[in-house]
Design a protein around this nucleic acid. Structure first.
Length: 426
RNA sequence: GCGAGCGUAGCCAAGGGGUUAAGGCAUCGGAUUGUGGUUCCGACACUCGGGGGUUCGAAUCCCCUCGUUCGCCCCA
């Protein structure tokens, strides 16, 4: 490409799409407010080792997807590939847990992963997520999931499927990893090459392979739940009970393993069938060890993140986010009238109206055409005659009714204008 | 990172070696020089993502490259 273009896997969000983003963000805000979550904003880049320590060096995200660079001070920095590590870091750094009780936080912003782009997957993408820090209660898990479901429901998504599993404690997983490796090692040569690789790096991921032969082998492999302590199993059952009590339908998916190392116990995904391969619209789980692993005290936590681009695909499909129109459109022609029109626009704006001023200087007919298309309720017209007499024509575009008034009366009749606008809306 | 498809105007597109690159939407101008939503007329790609090659001749064939889409991997 000879001309300039956005980097691969990034996208401009143009005004016609921004209305959808604002819609999603507004619903997120009100959903989180209703559950007493507070917003937190952390840096878009962090020290590289935060992610290495938090997410895990063996993960794909850290191993091959990070945007890492060295700054002028020779520091290794990384554009955040997710935000849980950053929030945990902020919690530690500002001693938020010392304020006692539970920290319920939410965030929204861009994340970066070096991946091959496709529909619903970009290199710069956006996540809205929540983190509940400081509670080990199964109710925290259930609440976080419930809030996620509230959010998706409020967005009007009809078919979110909640997939749910427990991957036990770190100890459970360690025991399971050994059992799994013991079981698989004799079959090593029969495994696909990816899985052979994972046998040493990340054996749990072999479970969700799609390779036929490997699937056959893992059919009879030991299961995680067999290795889980009775406490872990009890915890798993408690969360299930709570979800059931809340009337939330879920499917237990024993194959569900998250890609990041910090998860413990509860893991879940919410999927929307319509999206095909990139169907996961929200994912998360419990991460009891993360804060401690990053050098903080022991802070049990649970959270999730939702991909805004994917939500956007669904929300757009369901249509119907009203474009916001201006209240008034101001049309003018002639030097004095045009100057008056600018001043009038300002007056109206200061009175609280949304006003678009036509700057074209073209024929009144053309300007009216634009007034019509702008969706404004009324058009204010100023020409030579009005400039001469200090008047302005107000035409209500739906009815075609036109009235004339003095320019300096506008302030006085503002309440009437407001009233008319409100009537038109209802 | 691997395999495959696609790339013609702001948008949706036809055209698959022969020279004027269909059509629709949008936009702009006019009919209507101070009054809109309809209608009618007109304008709107020295050029087919970019670079190179084959050919008398390339949007059409070949190579490279960039972007995108689908599958794998992984993931929100």
């Amino acid at each position: 490409m000879a001309t300039v273009q956005a980097p691969r896997g990034t996208k401009d969000i143009l005004p016609e799409d921004v209305v959808y983003w604002q819609y999603i963000e507004a619903i997120a805000r009100s959903t989180f407010r209703s559950a007493a979550y507070q917003e937190i904003r952390t840096p878009i880049f962090e020290q590289t080792n935060l992610f290495e320590r938090g997410i895990g060096e063996a993960t794909d995200v850290v191993g091959k997807e990070m945007y890492t660079f060295t700054d002028r001070g020779d520091r290794s920095l990384t554009l955040r590939p997710e935000n849980t590590a950053g929030v945990a870091r902020a919690l530690i750094e500002h001693n938020l847990q010392a304020q006692g009780g539970v920290q319920r936080l939410w965030y929204s912003g861009p994340m970066f992963r070096y991946e091959r782009p496709k529909a619903g997957r970009q290199r710069q993408f956006h996540q809205i997520g929540v983190e509940v820090l400081g509670s080990a209660s199964p109710r925290a898990d259930a609440e976080a999931i419930a809030v996620a479901m509230n959010f998706l429901a409020a967005l009007g998504l009809k078919t979110p499927q909640l997939m749910f599993n427990s991957i036990g404690s770190f100890e459970d997983r360690k025991a399971y990893r050994e059992a799994l490796v013991d079981y698989l090692t004799p079959y090593k040569d029969d495994l696909d090459s990816d899985s052979q690789d994972r046998l040493t790096r990340n054996p749990l991921r072999i479970l969700d392979t799609k390779v036929e032969r490997t699937r056959e082998i893992i059919q009879d492999a030991p299961t995680l739940i067999q290795q889980m302590s009775s406490e872990s199993i009890q915890r798993f059952e408690q969360v299930q009970q709570l979800l059931t009590d809340l009337g939330l339908a879920y499917t237990i998916d024993p194959q569900l393993v998250r890609g990041l190392d910090y998860y413990t116990h509860t893991v879940f995904e919410i999927q929307a069938e319509e999206l095909g391969t990139e169907a996961t619209v929200c994912a998360g789980g419990r991460y009891d060890g993360l804060v401690e692993q990053l050098g903080g005290t022991e802070v049990p936590a649970v959270g999730w993140a939702s991909g805004v681009e994917r939500l956007l695909l669904l929300v757009k499909e369901h249509g119907a986010v009203p474009a916001q129109a201006v209240d008034f459109y101001v049309v003018s022609r002639g030097d004095r009238a045009e100057a008056n029109a600018l001043a009038l626009s300002q007056t109206l704006r200061k009175l609280g109206f949304a006003v678009e001023l036509d700057l074209s200087g073209s024929a009144f007919g053309k300007q009216f055409k634009r007034a019509d298309r702008s969706g404004a309720a009324a058009c204010f017209t100023l020409g030579d005659a009005e400039a001469e007499q200090g008047t302005v024509q107000i035409k209500w575009l739906a009815s075609g009714d036109q009235e004339e008034m003095k320019q300096d009366e506008i302030e006085a009749i503002a309440p009437n204008l407001r009233q008319k606008l409100d009537q038109l809306v209802s």
